[in-house]
Amino acid sequence: MIVYGYRLPGMSSLLLWGLLWEIVGRAGLTFFVPPLSEVVVTLFQVLGTAAFQKALFETAYAFVAGVAAAILIGIPVGILMGKSRLLDELLLPWVNVFLSAPLTALVPVLMVLFGFGMKAIIVTTTLFAIWIIILNARAGVRQINKSLVEMARSFGASPLNAFFKIYFWAALPEILGGVRIGIIRAVKGVIIGQLLISIVGFGALFELYSANFLMAHFWAVLIVLFALAFTISEFLAYLERRVSYYAAKR
């Protein structure tokens, strides 16, 4: 951003919004919005509490487990769908339905199926992430240069060799793109799961804060979550740019 000829560092407009928040908070318009300064002070207090760290740990655990399941199942399924017409016809409608479905509505069912706890949250996370990973891996395999496949075949590549030396690498840029979007969705999944199953992680924490009208605490944790999600997304975008540098060149 450039103001009066001065180049301001990225996101400096956030200062303006922070100032506005502070003013609204100090004006005491609503108990719902405490001043930003109070929120920030609370934030550093909250970070040290056992309750917060337990919530963070549980969330990280559910997130990592859910994302790992989504990746380990999603990529092979996507690649196989891209290669097999039959599998594609069987699965594609479901993948498309679930991709656009309001998965939040499924969480109560998952609670019944997997119990009122961690397992249901992990499954929710996986369900949020997996569909786009499948679709992208499938698209990656389908766009593969046909003569590259013929090349591998003409030099005597076995099906296994073709899979690991050609298909996987050729589809890698799309696969990584899918994993990135999948992980961003998984962040939503893990939080939504916890909010609905409000005895675990941040769900429990939010329940505690809102039941006691601790709005500063509430905002502090929210800011932490937003920052975490944003950092993860930016980090993945950075990785994707580095690994798939050749994608534009093929």
């Binding site: 003569s147 590259l148 013929e150 090349m151 003409s154 890698l172």
Partner: peptide
């Protein structure tokens, strides 16, 4: 085989 579009592995 030598391919018209080279068929090289970009990676």
């Amino acid at each position: 085989f030598v391919f018209q579009d080279f068929a090289l592995m970009p990676w």
